Measured scan of single mutants.
Amino acid sequence: RHRTTFSPVQLEQLESAFGRNQYPDIWARESLARDTGLSEARIQVWFQNRRAKQRK
Score class of each variant (00 low, 15 high):
46 W>G: 02
23 Y>R: 09
40 E>V: 11
28 A>R: 05
12 E>M: 04
21 N>S: 08
51 R>G: 01
16 S>F: 08
10 Q>M: 06
29 R>G: 01
7 S>C: 03
7 S>R: 02
15 E>Q: 04
41 A>G: 11
52 A>T: 12
23 Y>I: 11
14 L>C: 01
32 L>Y: 00
27 W>V: 15
13 Q>M: 13
56 K>M: 12
23 Y>D: 08
18 F>I: 00
7 S>M: 06
22 Q>F: 03
23 Y>Q: 06
4 T>Q: 09
52 A>S: 12
8 P>E: 10
43 I>A: 00
51 R>L: 08
23 Y>E: 12
28 A>D: 04
4 T>C: 13
6 F>P: 13
9 V>C: 14
3 R>W: 09
48 Q>P: 01
33 A>M: 05
51 R>M: 05
47 F>P: 00
48 Q>V: 12
12 E>L: 11
1 R>L: 06
22 Q>C: 09
22 Q>G: 05
34 R>C: 03
4 T>F: 12
23 Y>W: 14
19 G>H: 08
10 Q>Y: 00
49 N>T: 11
40 E>L: 12
50 R>A: 08
1 R>G: 12
55 R>S: 13
41 A>R: 10
19 G>Q: 09
50 R>F: 03
37 G>K: 11
29 R>I: 09
53 K>D: 15
8 P>R: 13
54 Q>M: 09
52 A>M: 12
13 Q>K: 07
9 V>S: 14
2 H>F: 13
22 Q>R: 07
34 R>A: 09
21 N>W: 06
20 R>Y: 05
27 W>S: 15
38 L>A: 10
13 Q>H: 08
35 D>W: 08
14 L>E: 01
45 V>D: 15
6 F>N: 04
5 T>P: 06
49 N>H: 10
49 N>Q: 13
5 T>L: 05
47 F>T: 01
46 W>H: 01
40 E>N: 03
26 I>T: 08
55 R>F: 10
17 A>M: 04
2 H>R: 07
51 R>A: 02
35 D>E: 15
21 N>D: 10
3 R>L: 14
20 R>V: 09
46 W>I: 03
54 Q>V: 07
54 Q>D: 11
9 V>E: 10
42 R>H: 14
29 R>A: 05
38 L>H: 03
22 Q>H: 11
24 P>M: 12
